[in-house]
Amino acid sequence: MAVTKAALKELLILAGVERAVVDALPSDAPMLRHGIDSLDFPSFIVVLEEHFGLTIPEAEAWELRTLDDFAAYLDARAPKA
């Protein structure tokens, strides 16, 4: 099952990011340049790990810059949820 951008946006909100920031976030733009800060980003990684039941290695996590990157990465990792 493909991971949708809408689902990722809901997980960003679960990670504590304000809805207005999430709503304005383009899926193909670097998240850290669109209101996601150094606290939001690791929080999002942890939420993804818990939601999909996987571990995202640090080196790989920091290569993922956009929501599209995350969707492709998670699709390739065969998420459980």
């Binding site: 929080s43 942890v46 640090e58």
Partner: peptide
């Protein structure tokens, strides 16, 4: 350049 600080706080 890792999530370590966040994970420590958590």
């Amino acid at each position: 350049q890792t999530s370590m600080a966040f994970r420590l706080l958590r």
